[in-house]
Design a protein around this nucleic acid. Structure first.
Length: 128
DNA sequence: CTTCTGACA
DNA sequence: TGTCAGTA
């Protein structure tokens, strides 16, 4: 069984200046349409566009993508939760102890996966 | 051939 | 989140 899908193994980021979405997808193991979707959810993800509108990702973009992927898939954060986490981390770069802000706690550990929400919406529509 | 947007599931 | 069309 030759799995041709997409391997999620940590790939070394090539020493190039720009990457196309297809390459970024293979490098990060994240589907192309998901990469485009995340752009609409995370400020800070704004790949330059070539003259013909093609996305041009830089190393930083790929690294941020890997981080978001980890927060969403490994830690099972919500888009909102991941956003907060990244925001708070921006303010406190390598702070010793990111004093837990009680206000964010709820969102940080807000768990429902967005994909599940979508499925629930579909099911509810079928039940109407 | 690859990526892009928009529409729809 | 996943797929498709028509395109640049």
């Amino acid at each position: 069984m030759v799995e041709t899908a997409i391997d999620n193994s940590p790939q070394p980021i090539p020493d190039k200046l720009y990457f196309r979405i297809g390459e970024v997808s293979r490098l990060t193991g994240v589907k192309q349409y998901v990469l485009r979707y995340w752009e609409s959810e995370f400020a800070g993800l704004g790949p330059k566009k070539s003259g013909t509108g093609h996305r041009l990702y830089r190393r930083k973009d790929v690294e941020l993508l890997l981080e978001i992927k980890h927060l969403l898939y490994e830690k099972r954060f919500t888009i909102e939760g991941a956003r907060k986490w990244l925001e708070d981390r921006r303010k406190a770069p390598i702070a010793a102890k990111p004093a837990p802000k009680p206000e964010n706690q709820a969102e940080l550990f807000d768990s429902p996966v967005d994909g599940i929400r979508h499925e629930l919406r579909e099911i509810l529509k079928l039940l109407k």
